[in-house]
Design a protein around this nucleic acid. Sequence first.
DNA 1: ACCAATTTGTCCGTATGTATG
DNA 2: TCATACATACGGACAAATTGG
Lengths: 248, 248
Amino acid sequence: MQPRFPRVSPTPAYQQVAEAIEREIVTGHIRPGDPLGTEAELVKQFGVNRSTIREGIRLLEQGGLLRRDSSRRLWVGLPHYERLATRMSRALVLHEVTFRELYEAAMPIQIATIEAAVERATPELIAALEDNIERTERALRDSTAVAELDGEFHGLIGRASGNRVLQLAREPSEALVVETTELILAKVKEGAPRLLHAHRMYVDALKRRDKDAGRLWVRRHLDDWRKGFERAGRDLDRPIDRIYLQNR
Amino acid sequence: MQPRFPRVSPTPAYQQVAEAIEREIVTGHIRPGDPLGTEAELVKQFGVNRSTIREGIRLLEQGGLLRRDSSRRLWVGLPHYERLATRMSRALVLHEVTFRELYEAAMPIQIATIEAAVERATPELIAALEDNIERTERALRDSTAVAELDGEFHGLIGRASGNRVLQLAREPSEALVVETTELILAKVKEGAPRLLHAHRMYVDALKRRDKDAGRLWVRRHLDDWRKGFERAGRDLDRPIDRIYLQNR
DNA sequence: ACCAATTTGTCCGTATGTATG
DNA sequence: TCATACATACGGACAAATTGG
C-alpha cells in the first residue's frame, strides 16, 4: 500500500462556527456595525452547545472581527490598524528582525506617506499636528513621553495621507520605531530637540505642499533615528530585543 | 459628589488567561516551538475552569501565537506572514479601500523590495523564480492560474529581499493584487503575456544586479496592472469589491 | 496488534453578576 | 425598584482520538 492519501482530520465544531461567521462578514452578508445576535440564538442556528459557540466567538474576537459593547452584546467589528499593527510588530519581534530591516522598510513607506500627506492634508489634521508639536515641546525632557508623542505624530501623518493601505503598511514598523526611539532618546540627549525640529519641518512642508521638503525631512528624521540607534551602542544587524516590548 | 472616578470594569478571566500566556511568549520566557502543556495543567496553574482556559486559548490560537499539532496538543507558534497578511487584507476590504490606495502603496513597497532583492538574491531563489516563470508560460491561458503564479512570484521576490518587514508590509496588498490580477487577466487578453515578460525582466535584473532595471520593470508591471484595472471597466476610486475575496 | 491512560472535543446543568427597560 | 435577559464562570460528564506500553 504505497500511495497514501493526505491525512484527513475532522474540523472541530468551534472552528466551523468561527469560519462560518467569518465568511458571512467577509462576503458582506453581515456588515460591521450589525448585531450578531445572542449566544443562545447562535446555539439554535448552529445546533451546537453554547460552550462550542463561545470558543468559536473567541477566535474572531481577538482579530477584531467581532466586538462586544459595554453590555457585552456581540457586534460585527471593523478591525483597526493599531490592533493589527500591534500583533504584527509582536510577530516581527518574535521573528527576530534586525533594525536594518526596520529602517530599510520604514524609509520608502514613510516617504510615500509624506508625499500623499502633502497632497491631501486637511487643516484639521495640520492643527492636530501642531498641537502634538506643542505638547512635545513641553515634554522635551521626558524621553518616554516624547517617544509616544512621536508615535502619535506619525500616526497623524498616516491619517493625513488618506491612504489606509500605507497606514497599515507603516504601523507595524511604527510600533517598533516608538520602542527604539524611547531607547535612543534616553541615551542621546540631543535626540529630542532634533526630533522636534524635524516634526516642525514636516508640518511646514505640509502647509506649503512641498513634496521635496517632505521627502528631505523624512530622510533626515529617519537617518537621525538610525544614527541614534548606533550611538546608543546597538548593532544594526542584530535582532531587536524583545525586552522593548515587554509592557503591553 | 462631583468628581467621579473612571468606571472600573473587571477583566474577564479568559482574557486574563490569554494575556498572561501572551506576555510569557512575547517576553521570551516561553519560546516558539515550546510545548504549552495540557489544558488540565493550565487549569491547575490559573485556578480557573477548563472552559475558561479553552476560551483564552482560542484568543491566541487565531493569531498564530499558539498552534495545535496533529495530535491537537498546544505549542507556542511563530506567527507567519501569510496568516497575518490574510487577516490584514480582509481588514482592508472591510475598510473598503480603493484600488488607488492599493496602487499608491504597492509602488514604493515593491520598488524597495526589488532594490533589496537585487542586492541579496541567492542562486536558489533565482532558480525558483525561473521555475515559476516556466510554469507561468505553460498556464498562460488560465487566468486564475497565472494570477496565482504571479502571487507566488512576488512572494519569492519578497523572500529574495531578505527583509521581513518589507515582506510583511507587502503581503497584505499582495493578496488583493492577486484578486484584482485575476479579474484583469480574465478581461484583458494581452495581460498574461505582458505579465510574463515583466517577470522575465525582473529576474534578468536580479541576475545582472541592476537596480535601475529592477525599478523600471516594477514601475511598468504596476502601471500595466493599473491600466488593466481601468481597461476592465473598474473605477480606481471606488472600494474594491469584497466579492473578490469570497473564497478563503 | 491490542490495551490502558491521557487528552481533547463536546455537551449539560447551574449559579452569579450586570445591563436594560 | 423590580424583573428579565444575557454573558461569565463553574463543575461534572462522556465519547473519540492519541500516546505509550
